[in-house]
């Protein structure tokens, strides 16, 4: 995987990006027990197949975006849209 499609800047070399990983929502901390909190912090679906994941164009526009990628092939399945287009 050498290029990542930034929705704002177009495809750019991998080195310009940081990986944010699987999208995991933060649970409400008040009622959450240790197990729930531990799961939020550490447990991941880690699918072998399509995964919705975050990237940031850290050495570019510095914007975060979400794309879908097949982890079994590393192929990017959708080109993420800019927020205004989505």
């Amino acid at each position: 995987m050498e290029r990542i499609p930034c929705p704002h800047c177009g495809p750019r070399p991998l080195a310009e990006f940081s990986y944010g990983g699987e999208v995991v929502p933060r649970p409400d901390p008040e009622p959450a027990d240790d197990a729930t909190w531990g799961a939020y912090l550490y447990v991941r679906s880690n699918p072998k197949g399509p995964q919705s994941e975050r990237w940031v164009h850290i050495h570019g526009c510095r914007r975060w975006f979400t794309l879908t990628r097949d982890t079994a092939t590393h192929r990017i399945l959708d080109t993420p849209l800019r927020k205004e287009e989505a």
């Binding site: 975050r54 940031v56 510095r62 914007r63």
Partner: peptide, 8 residues
């Protein structure tokens, strides 16, 4: 900080 701001 940007990650929290932009994503959450």
């Amino acid at each position: 900080m940007e990650e929290w701001l932009q994503t959450e």
